[in-house]
């Protein structure tokens, strides 16, 4: 464990707590893409298959459980909670995320560390996570003004993988045999997808203005 990865995990946890706060406090999920949340739930379920077979550390196990439980709780809430589901922007959240599923799965069949069930699904979860934010970013562009908590949520979500990139650089210097090309390249793509969001987030922070994404 290194400081970059720890900060990355904490940033990821903060983003989830912000989303839970928004949904719990405002009983609304306006501006949140259910499709992105469903993709994240799938990312965690396919990545943490080793939850009960490989024990790495208490921290690792606890964080995996928190990520799985929170992502499922958010999806359940957006689908079934009477107040929350009514605020879901169904007509705006129209990204065809099944293509993301298919593309990630096909790529995982081609590119993986080992052709084994758990490894192919692990690679699938890495590729899927890289593109899972797309429905959310498209929804933000369509819904124009972005409420504060939603903006913070997306910001921390993007920042966590950027910190992981520093973690991979650090681990490479510590141990040149440490190569995680799949996670690293996907992490770069994932962070790059946030580039324009980070730009508009920075502008809104500098001008102390509301976060506006161009349509």
């Amino acid at each position: 464990m290194n400081i970059f990865r720890f900060l990355g995990d904490m940033t990821h946890l903060i983003s989830i707590l912000i989303l839970l706060l928004k949904i719990y406090a405002t009983k609304s999920c306006s501006g949140i893409s259910l499709k992105t949340q469903e993709l994240y739930a799938l990312v965690f379920l396919t990545r943490y298959l080793d939850l009960f077979t490989d024990f790495i550390s208490v921290y690792n196990t606890v964080m995996k459980l928190v990520f799985i439980a929170s992502s499922l709780a958010i999806v359940w809430c957006m689908r079934n909670h009477p107040l929350v589901r009514r605020s879901y922007d169904k007509q705006l959240d129209t990204f065809r995320h099944y293509f993301l599923l298919l593309a990630s799965f096909l790529l995982a069949l081609l590119l993986h560390e080992k052709f084994a069930f758990q490894e192919v699904l692990w690679a699938f979860s890495i590729y899927l996570e890289a593109v899972a934010i797309l429905p959310q970013l498209v929804l933000l562009q369509r819904s124009g003004n972005v409420d504060n908590l939603t903006g913070q949520y997306v910001f921390f979500l993007g920042a966590y993988r950027a910190l992981y990139i520093f973690n991979w650089i650090y681990r490479y210097f510590i141990d040149p045999h440490f190569t995680r090309w799949i996670a690293c390249v996907s992490g770069l793509v994932q962070t790059a997808l946030y580039a324009d969001f980070f730009y508009y987030y920075f502008i809104s922070w500098k001008n102390n203005a509301k976060l506006q994404l161009p349509a």
């Binding site: 790495i56 964080m63 995996k64 992981y164 973690n167």
Partner: peptide, 10 residues
């Protein structure tokens, strides 16, 4: 921490 496949990260 290194596991087979090195999946020690979240």
């Amino acid at each position: 921490e290194q596991l087979q496949g090195g999946h020690d990260e979240l």
